[in-house]
């Protein structure tokens, strides 16, 4: 923090408000669990004790109103796509979307002939991070979440408003 750094005692931290906000938001992104198919099993494994998502500040929530990140884990059918959109709209800002697995990113195995499957959740909601795999291992999902944290940290919410 330039000239102000190390000018105060140990228990005083100096930071720009933008960065502070970014840090605060990125380290506790509660996620909206969206288990639609087999990816949900991997997502559960990620949240369970072996991979322990809690250590990067993520807690699964069942309500869109308490969540910051929506992890779309699984095959989104046309019937479900309207619900996905509705639930996304119910989330409070700032909100992020992770498309987990082949189905959520592009339709997966239903890519060409699946009449009932949405060909990628990005046709309905804006996606921040795509996690490839069928289904992705918990490590891959955690990698995606860390990428999302980087993205959130790089945001400058206050600067944006002034500009």
């Amino acid at each position: 923090m330039g000239i102000l750094e190390n000018k105060f005692q140990d228990n005083v931290v100096v930071a720009s408000l933008d960065k502070l906000l970014g840090w605060a938001r990125s380290t506790s992104p509660w996620f909206f669990q969206f288990g639609l198919a087999c990816c949900a099993i991997e997502m559960m494994a990620t949240a369970a004790s072996r991979y322990d998502l809690m250590r990067i500040g993520m807690i699964p929530r069942s309500s869109p109103r308490q969540a910051d990140v929506m992890i779309v884990a699984g095959t989104v059918t046309m019937k479900m796509s309207l619900r996905v959109k509705k639930l996304y709209e119910q989330m409070a800002n700032p909100k992020y979307v992770i498309a987990m697995g082949s189905c959520a990113t592009s339709g997966g195995p239903y890519w060409q002939y699946g009449y009932h499957v949405l060909k990628g959740v990005d046709l309905v909601v804006p996606v921040d991070v795509y996690v490839p795999g069928c289904p992705p291992r918990p490590e891959a999902l955690i990698e995606g979440l860390l990428k999302l944290q980087e993205k959130i940290q790089a945001e400058r919410p206050l600067t944006k408003k002034i500009a």
Partner: peptide, 14 residues
């Protein structure tokens, strides 16, 4: 297959 469902494109597009 129908082309759109509630404004969402159904067949493969990408």
């Amino acid at each position: 297959t129908q082309e759109t469902y509630h404004g969402i494109i159904v067949p493969k597009v990408k």
